[in-house]
Simulated scan of single mutants.
Amino acid sequence: MAAVLVLPLTALLVLVAVLLAVLLSLNRVVSVPSGGDPAVLRATSRRLLWTRLAGLAAGAAASWLVFAWDGLGRGPMLAAPVLGVGLLLGTLAGELTVPRPHGPVRGASLEIRRARDYLPGFSAPLAAGLSLIAVVLLTVTSVTAAADDLGRPGRTLAMVSADGTVRSAVGPWPGWFYAWPMLAVLAAAFLLSALVVHRVVQRGRPGLDVAARAVDDAQRTHSARVVTAAYGLCVALPLTGVAVVTAGALFRQSDLAGWAVPTGFAVLGVALIAVASAVWYLAELLSRPRIRAS
C-alpha cells in the first residue's frame, strides 16, 4: 500500500515545487541600470543552464547505476545525492567556462567579495541545519545499531525487555552500514559546493561600470542559489528516507520501550521538515530571475 502511494505523493510534491518556482520567479526581478546590456546576462545564463543540464544528465545516469548498486537500500539512499553531485559538477563547469574580461584595456576593482554576499539568506542556513540534523541522527542510529542475522554490522535495532526474557531485533535500521556511505557522499557534496561557491565569488568581473557590475552580481547570486539548492537536495532527500525508516523501526519496538513511540513521532517530524525543504530547494532550482531594464 505504501509503495502505491509513493508515485502520486511524489507527483504532488513536484507540482507544488513547480508552482512555488513560478511564484519565486515572478518575485525575483533583476533591474539592469540604464546603459546596461540585458543580453549579457541572458547569454551567460544560457551558457550556465546548458552546462547544468549536462551535469544533471550525467548525474541522472550515475544515479540510476547507484540505485541498482545495492539491494539492501543503500543504492536508493545515495541516488539523490549522486544526482545533486552531477548538477554541482555541471555548475562548476559552467562557472569555469564563463569568459574572462578581455580587450586592449582592462581594469581591476579593489572590492572584497565574500560568499555571504551571494548566498541566499534562508536556503543556506536551512541546508546547514539539515546537515547538522543528518549527522546527529546518523550518529545516534549508528551507536544504537546491532548486526543483522548475517553478521552485517549496523543494520538492525535490537532491544531486550525489562526482565530480560524477550529480545527483538528489527530492520532495516540506519546504523553504520548505511551511515558511512551517506556521510561520505554528503561530505563530497559539501566540499564540491564550497569549491563552486568559491569560484562564483572569485571569478573576474566582465566590466567595472555600474551596469556591468549589476548584471554580474545578479548572475553570481543566481549561481550561488543553484549551488545551495543542489546541496540542499543532496541532504534533504536521503534525510527524509532515513527518518522514515528510523521511525518505522521505533514503532515496531514500542512493546519493549515506552519511549519508542514519542521518539518515532519526533523523527517523523524531521522527515516532514526534510520533505518541505526538498520541495523548497527544487523550486529554487526551477526558478529563474526575470531581467528588466530600468
Rank of each mutant, 00 (worst) to 15 (best):
G55F: 04
V226F: 03
A162W: 10
G121L: 09
I133T: 15
T156Q: 06
G204P: 14
F122E: 15
Y231P: 02
A236W: 00
W176H: 05
A3N: 11
R213D: 10
S63E: 02
P81R: 04
F177V: 04
A274H: 00
L13H: 03
T228K: 10
A124P: 04
L48D: 03
W259G: 03
A2V: 14
M159I: 06
L208Q: 12
L233Q: 06
P99W: 05
P206K: 09
M159W: 12
L272P: 10
S34W: 10
A134P: 01
A243W: 10
L56R: 00
A146W: 10
S131M: 13
L72H: 07
A115H: 07
V66P: 02
L126C: 06
R220V: 05
A39S: 14
Y281F: 09
R292A: 10
S254K: 08
A169M: 04
L138K: 08
S123G: 13
R100L: 12
L83S: 08
A278F: 00
V196F: 07
L12W: 11
V242L: 06
L183F: 00
L110G: 15
L9P: 06
A145P: 00
A211N: 03
V14E: 07
A115N: 11
L89W: 12
A179C: 03
F122T: 11
W173L: 01
P262R: 04
G107D: 14
V261W: 08
